[in-house]
Design a protein around this nucleic acid. Structure first.
Length: 582
RNA sequence: CGGGGCGUAGCGCAGCCUGGUAGCGCGCCAGUUUUGGGUACUGGAUGUCGCCGGUUCAAAUCCGGCCGCCCCGACCA
């Protein structure tokens, strides 16, 4: 491709909305343009990267026997009502009404559609297992799209769904996808980790995330260096109730008493005001679990993991109560909830009180007084209030003990989730009558799995991981072009002839090459090639050509070397191959 | 949804407080120049100042409403 005939609108200055490297360079390099919040146009360069990633995904999926399909973006509400998600998905599901007043949604995922497809055409165990996938745009009406392609509302995803006759087969299907995903991300040149994850509202019983290691990632991941256990922070368990080991000696502690805390709402404020540490303040979070309010006690310096709470309670949904509920339950404005003297619920039942293990064994603590602008101090758990049970519900932190080995301690890193696989079981197949007959003639629901990869998110993640101040340093397999030829003085016949030959030779060698044949200053070409992130650049200029040389630059390492013109194409073709190019 | 900010040329911004000719840099077009890391000079084109309404002789500027975008928080296969 010749730059003079290409559309590559690079920008010298970054649009002000871009904060992250990936967002900035994608915009500046002319890969994408924003159309609306979280919605982007893909320009020619962006599409090229998208295709390279998609092709890798496709190859690895096909290698595992998965079959490519293409499902509709617009889906009828009926299917979602069948699975129950029309009610449960919430405002993230973009719903539309057609001219006949029928309800539809723009698919945020395709479990319903694929399950419907499977139940119609798959009847016998002889036809299983089947794994079908597609690469297609999804829409999720995110509250807050951010970071360009990192969290858009419309994005491109590869989603696959497996159907097996039994759990054993389904586990094999799951493992095949696990392996395929590792191969895909490795081929994309990403530094990633496989992470144990929660299944969220998609359901199922086993799940792994594939996280690209990046400072700018939204997810927090804990990893134990001694046993390599790696898990999303929101569900990282802790080893035993070690926090509460110190036994309470309530004897010397005076009765609890109210203190006026007029302007102190946060734990930090209260601790500072009363001259105690934040770990001596116990915060009481009013949550709603499956519709019932529940009080959850946590040490002031800890955060709640709503995922761990949900799992510990065996609830299907857990959320923080809204202000009105908090006021009803505590009789005080938000910020002063405490375990002492909580009101019974509307139905007359006493509100349940649970606590994190770390609260066990604390004594002489500060808690909210369930009264506006008051706290209690010298409170002793067990003496002044009772806890129904102690649970592991706080977010694990770096340094916390790993539950899978005797002495390991978690370390923390941030990641960008680029893939997620779920062992679904029969959640959708049972709800939607996706059944088959086994060898004995029994009718059973199929055992499913689903597997997603954020294709557009890979683009962003790859940049977060591979860039410098000048621009992108694409890994060769997903770079928009593998090499560029920069003709520094197009008016000079020697230069243009040499550059044309290099261009032709590289093409003949199967290299995906961009030829900068514009009548521009050298600086412009260098800057654009670096910005756009072409891995290998051959610089053909009058100065070196006079000696029969051109310069070969490696964008990733920054090394430049002078080589004879005649050898340059061969050298670059060789390096492209070694780096995993086409 | 709560808090904050922004909306003026393709991009980055000034002008608004204190109402009166719409500006700067980059980019773009023409020409000259330059030719190994965004060259210099000359000339030029480009704006419903986000939208609607109000105040006023006069509104980018003041007032009201709406819309859009960004950031923080809550949310999130």
């Amino acid at each position: 491709m010749r730059v003079s005939r290409y559309h590559m609108p690079t920008l010298k200055e970054a649009p002000k909305e871009a904060e992250l490297a990936s967002h900035t360079f994608l915009l500046r390099g002319g890969f994408i343009r924003q159309l609306a919040a979280g919605i982007y146009d893909f320009l020619p360069l962006g599409v090229k990267v998208l295709h390279k990633v998609s092709n890798i995904v496709r190859e690895e999926m096909n290698r595992k026997g998965a079959l490519e399909v293409l499902l509709p973006a617009v889906q009828p509400a009926e299917l979602w009502q069948e699975s129950g998600r029309w009610q449960h998905y919430g405002p993230e599901l973009l719903r539309v009404v057609d001219r006949h007043k029928r309800d539809f949604c723009i698919g945020p995922t395709h479990e319903e559609v694929i399950t419907d497809l499977a139940r119609r055409d798959l009847r016998s165990y002889r036809e299983l297992p089947v794994n079908m996938y597609q690469i297609q745009a999804k829409f999720r009406d995110e509250i807050k799209p951010r970071g360009g392609l990192l969290r858009g509302r419309e994005f491109i995803m590869k989603d696959a769904y497996s159907f097996d006759a039994d759990a054993d087969g389904a586990r094999k299907s799951y493992q095949a996808m696990y392996d395929a995903y590792c191969a895909i991300f490795r081929r994309c040149g990403l530094d990633f980790r496989v992470v144990e994850a929660d299944t969220g509202n998609i359901g199922g019983s086993m799940s792994h995330e594939f996280q690209v290691v990046a400072e700018t990632g939204e997810d927090y991941v804990l990893r134990c260096p001694s046993c390599d256990h790696t898990v999303n922070q929101e569900m990282a368990a802790l080893r035993g109730p070690v926090d509460g080991a110190a036994s309470a000696d309530a004897l010397g502690i005076p009765p609890f008493e109210p203190v006026h805390t007029p302007d102190q709402k946060s734990v930090e404020d209260v601790a500072a005001f009363l001259g105690v540490t934040t770990s001596q303040v116990v915060k009481t979070l009013i949550c709603v679990a499956d519709g019932e309010p529940i009080a959850v006690l946590l040490r002031g310096d800890h955060d709640l993991s709503d995922v761990k709470l949900r799992r510990a309670l065996g609830a299907t949904s857990v959320e923080l109560a809204d202000d009105a509920t908090v006021e009803k339950v505590t009789g005080a404005i938000v910020g002063f909830a405490g375990p002492v003297g909580l009101k019974p619920t509307a139905s007359g039942k006493k509100i349940r009180i649970v606590a994190d293990h770390s609260v066990n064994g604390l004594c002489d603590i500060v808690v909210g007084a369930n009264r506006d602008y008051y706290h209690f101090r010298h409170v002793v758990p067990g003496r002044d209030f009772q806890v129904e049970k102690f649970l592991d519900v706080r977010n694990a932190l770096a340094g916390d003990p790993c539950p899978h080995c005797a002495d390991g301690a978690y370390s923390l890193f941030r990641g960008i989730e680029v893939g997620h696989i779920f062992y679904l079981g029969t959640k959708y197949s049972a709800a939607m009558q996706c059944i088959f007959q086994d060898i004995e003639g029994n009718v059973k629901p199929m055992v499913m799995g689903c597997y997603g990869i954020g294709v557009t998110r890979i683009m962003a993640a790859a940049i977060e991981q591979n860039h410098d101040e000048r621009g992108i340093k694409w890994p060769v397999p997903i770079a928009p072009f593998e090499a560029a030829v920069l003709a520094l003085q197009v008016a000079d016949p020697n230069v243009s002839a040499a550059a044309e030959k290099l261009y032709a030779d590289l093409q003949a060698a199967g290299v995906d090459v961009l030829f900068d044949d514009r009548d521009q200053r050298p600086g412009v070409k260098f800057a654009d090639a670096d910005l756009v992130g072409i891995p290998f650049q051959i610089v053909a200029g009058a100065r070196d050509l006079a000696e029969g040389l051109v310069e070969v630059k490696d964008r990733r390492t920054g090394t430049r070397e002078k080589v004879p013109v005649g050898e340059a194409a061969g050298i670059v073709a060789q390096r492209v191959r070694e780096a995993g190019g086409q």
